[in-house]
């Protein structure tokens, strides 16, 4: 469902991610653990492109959300002038590709330098697979450490804003294409409101529908933030340390809600420091260290039989 291919992320000179590849299957729950600064939050943010990867590709349900990364497509490399030059200098196909990848020889900033064939290859990949970044994001719900509820909107408006705006835009686009949908803008508003109330009922906050987020407790805010993401009916949920900013007595209610979602089969990627929770809900655990995946496996493998010494060290500190 979600494919991460060879992601690199640099902030200036600082390399935060150094080639991360993984995939998330439908219905799977992946928990990412690791020390602060290991790149786990950055990896999550790269998944829905809140951070744009420096290299690599993100694929959502078979659609490419990032620009194509030429190093991931051998055909593209073979179409470049640099490759042809290396081959004419006597390197074999395999050697040339390895050299280009290892030394970052493609002139990406000046794609024309690599010749028209290279440019058209890149274009072709994007045209065949590319997807508007906003469309991709609509399929991913994101939950932030600091909730990020819209301060200027009521709880209900927080939940309905995106469905209404995007729903109306879809109506317009459909009309423009000459295939109008069988809906009015009012239908969209009513549907969004009804869904919002249903979601609020699910977390028992229906009486808070018309208050502003500043009057809610931290736990309530995070639960509203979660159902705000659910209102877009995402195919995968990304949780970025959802309980880290909460007072201890409120952690439970948020974890209960996430547990509920996971039980219902929601595909999820969760960055967390709650090891007990990770063990309980994860189908697969990823241990990040220094910008790479250092250990990956079932909870039993990672927590009980870790192979990587860094992972062992980390777990011995957090599991006392």
């Amino acid at each position: 469902m979600l494919d991460i291919k060879n992601i690199y992320k640099n902030f200036g000179d600082l390399q935060v991610l150094k080639g991360v590849s993984t995939h998330v299957d439908k219905g799977e729950v992946v928990v990412i653990i690791g020390v602060s600064g290991s790149g786990k939050s950055t990896l999550l943010r790269c998944m829905n492109l809140l951070e744009e990867p420096s290299f690599g590709e993100v694929w959502m349900e078979g659609k490419l959300m990032t620009p194509p990364d030429p190093y991931l497509h051998w055909d593209v490399i073979r179409s470049s002038k640099t490759y042809r030059r290396l081959v004419s200098e006597g390197l074999s196909d395999d050697e040339a590709i390895k050299k280009i990848k290892a030394e970052d020889l493609l002139k990406e900033r000046h794609p024309k330098y690599e010749g028209p064939e290279y440019v058209s290859q890149m274009k072709k990949i994007y045209e065949e697979n590319g997807i508007d970044i906003n469309l991709g994001r609509q399929k991913m719900g994101m939950v932030f450490q600091s909730f990020n509820l819209f301060n200027n909107k009521t709880v209900k408006e927080n939940i309905t804003l995106a469905p209404i705006k995007i729903g109306k835009q879809r109506l317009k686009d459909a009309k423009k294409r000459g295939k109008p949908l069988d809906k009015t803008p009012d239908d969209i508003v009513n549907e969004a409101n009804a869904k919002a109330m249903k979601l609020l009922e699910r977390i028992g906050l229906q009486d808070k529908a018309d208050v502003y987020p500043s009057t809610l407790s931290g736990g309530q805010r995070q639960r509203v933030a979660i159902i705000r993401a659910l209102a877009m009916e995402p195919d995968v949920m990304l949780f970025d340390e959802p309980t880290s900013a909460l007072d201890p007595e409120m952690v439970g209610e948020v974890l209960d809600l996430i547990r509920d979602l996971v039980k219902d089969g929601m595909t999820s990627v969760i960055v967390t420091h709650e090891m007990g929770f990770a063990k309980e809900v994860a189908d697969r655990v990823i241990f990040m260290h220094d910008g790479v995946i250092a250990e990956e496996g079932t909870p039993d493998q990672v927590f009980n039989h870790p192979q990587n010494p860094r992972c062992r060290e980390f777990l011995s500190k957090v599991l006392k």
Binding site: L50, N134, L135, G141, M142, F144
Partner: peptide, 10 residues
């Protein structure tokens, strides 16, 4: 605030 809005696909 901006990140949350973008993450919803706005």
């Amino acid at each position: 605030q901006m990140e949350a809005a973008r993450s919803l696909g706005l």
